[in-house]
Nucleic acid binder design. Structure first.
Lengths: 225, 225, 225, 225
DNA sequence: GATGAATGAGCATTCATTCAT
DNA sequence: TATGAATGAATGCTCATTCAT
């Protein structure tokens, strides 16, 4: 009945979640994500979403079963894509030196946070629904800490890193600072060049730079040789 | 008509905000804070609040003008108290060594975040209403960065710190990591001893410890000697 | 909160049902009864009811909790009144001869059916909700059969009745014929004098006359000596 | 366009009603009858019907024009069959004695009521739609009263009946008691042997037995000789 | 000041029906 | 003939707020 369509963009098997979204359904999810991030789940009515997505109100129930279930699909969809994306990314840095790998990890995570800041904004925001996404998100965090841990160990082994901060602390710093920057624009923009329109772009650069400094400092990084 | 009462607990002059809250009004604000942090602003009805606070539904409109305005009072009330509290705190560390001062700053900020985690949770959460509190909050951030900056400079001058990270980056790390820990219990508790009930207490310790390490590493701290 | 008011018309203690209805609440119940009898429960919207009763839509939920609960109150209210009314009636015929008592019973029951034909129409009609009223209604039926039984026995003892039909069959005939007449106007009115406007009045007379004949025939009634 | 198909089961000429139903259409009518009897017309959605009948939702509008018109077809279909069935039955008792004929009439009518209790339940129930079926049903009642009248006259002529109750009163008793029994299970089953599962079977027997007694009593029946 | 009743706007959802294929 | 997507109207209900006292 619902959650099938013509174009496959998304595939998942667990949790009884259906597999495919049509363009129209994805349009709804995109619009919903944006509005929910701005106004909260309760503050966003299905009429708001349907108006902005140019679809009939009834379609949200029709496609997803309910507004709440739509949110569940949205959560799972975004988190799964983030995890898939991280897995792909992890492949691309398989061969590099630890310091390059760490830098890339920081870059990747901060980039994801800013790219999907709508989503990450409301994941943090929607306290009541966090359980929907908790497991998926935590699994992503684990994958990230595993990778971070591996890189730290390798760096220590090859004597470019001289300290072993905990992987979860490293991840906490990266994500925590990114989210803080995104959510505290008024405070943050004072420290940024350019005008307001470029805020996200500039903030992302600053967060990355800051994180390189912080994390490498924590690692006791000494360039080889 | 409203927002005045018998007992003065709170005084403020700007923004046309009235000055005094009665016990009953403070009770409402406390209950509202807790419920809003748990269920969001829209997810919390004035009936929920009035039931839990044992007052009549009509009183919220009556006292504060509207539910939205009540939130504004709540924001301002909490932020102002945080700023006052920081000012007091700043006095207490006036005489110490830079490394002790920095440690106390970290301790104080993390402590505030956990103590008022309800509040800070929903400040981050209620995107739509952030403008209500923005100026106040940013002013607090400024006060904090000024102090941090002062301590860094003093530490460099006295040669216990050998690097000069930006004050806003330091603050970003402290607040960002604290908020992340609070909001990601499921991920975080794996790294903590003790049971779930002690989560906040243990998480606070871990965040403090991690921040000492991070910030001091960034400062290139070398104990005098 | 709801189902209390100023004027007491109705009192009941069991089932956790509240005790008193205000005039406004009774107005709603009356209107609801009429509309539901005409158009069914699902066919009657709370907007229909509130429009006809000249009250705000929200009041139905406010007073009764929900549309469904309103129906439950209506059921219990009407059935209880019927039972109370029967108990009173039973007192008034305590002293009479069995044949007079039986006639009065028939008259009373048929009268109630026609008087509250709206209600009895939809009790029969609302299959899905019958459980709400089943126990109460059955208890009324029992009271009636007990009384019928008593009268039959007395009549047999005093040799005015010479047969002993089952009390439940007697009740079934009385109620069954009354309901049939009410619900089959088009068929029934052919056999009645007067015009359509008097249908209920005339039908009631016919049903009573027919029942006197039937029941007394079943009882083998022979006027005394 | 609609209401015609491959297999003819049903033929009628009046009211502009089309004549034939396909197997699929009959399946829909059967399912609809059952569901409507259980949950009412408004309580039964076309989706419920189509799901249970394994057809597409759109087919009901497509076949019958609308949900309401489907009900009209259902009414007319059932009533016509009942009338046809009664006509056939009338033939089979043409030659018997009046007392046997009357007994068979009671048996037949009660049997029909219980056999099509779904249908008769909702004919009584769906007040709003009764006009759809009124004329047809009344015509059936007339046929029945005519036959009852004929039998009474014959019995009186042959001196087995000694009273002349009105035919419409006799019919009213038969149908009224049958419907009452069907619709008041909880009250009625106390007087029946066997368990709940056999309710309809046992109730039918009791209603028949009771009606034999009542009607023959009314007729002043005296076995010949 | 304080209350319970009352209001009207808004909500998510379900509905029978129609459309496009 | 038959379908699944799509529609717009209506549903019961909850909401913050205001009214009358």
């Amino acid at each position: 009945m619902f959650v099938n369509g013509k174009k496959d963009i998304f595939t998942q098997t667990k949790n009884g979640m259906k597999k495919k979204f049509t363009d129209k359904q994805l349009k709804i999810l995109d619009v919903a994500e944006e509005l929910i991030a701005k106004k909260g789940f309760d503050g966003t009515s299905v009429r708001d979403i349907s108006a902005k997505a140019n679809i009939n109100v009834a379609m949200i129930s029709y496609y997803f079963g309910s507004k709440e279930k739509m949110l569940a699909y949205l959560y799972q969809y975004r988190v799964l894509r983030t995890r898939e994306s991280f897995a792909e990314f992890a492949q691309t840095i398989r061969e590099g030196k630890p310091e390059m790998q760490m830098k890339e990890i920081i870059k990747f995570i901060v980039n994801q946070m800013f790219k999907y800041n709508y989503f990450h904004a409301f994941v943090k925001q929607e306290v009541r629904h966090t359980d929907l996404v908790k497991d998926e998100l935590v699994e992503f965090y684990r994958t990230a800490t595993d990778k971070i841990d591996e890189v730290i160990k390798k760096g220590v082994a090859s004597a470019v890193f001289h300290q072993t901060p905990k992987a979860e602390d490293v991840l906490t710093i990266i994500i925590g600072t990114a989210v803080f920057a995104i959510r505290n624009k008024v405070f943050y923009e004072v420290y940024l060049p350019g005008d307001e329109a470029d805020f996200l772009k500039n903030a992302e650069q600053k967060v990355k730079a800051s994180n390189y400094q912080t994390i490498f400092s924590l690692l006791g990084y000494q360039p080889e040789g």
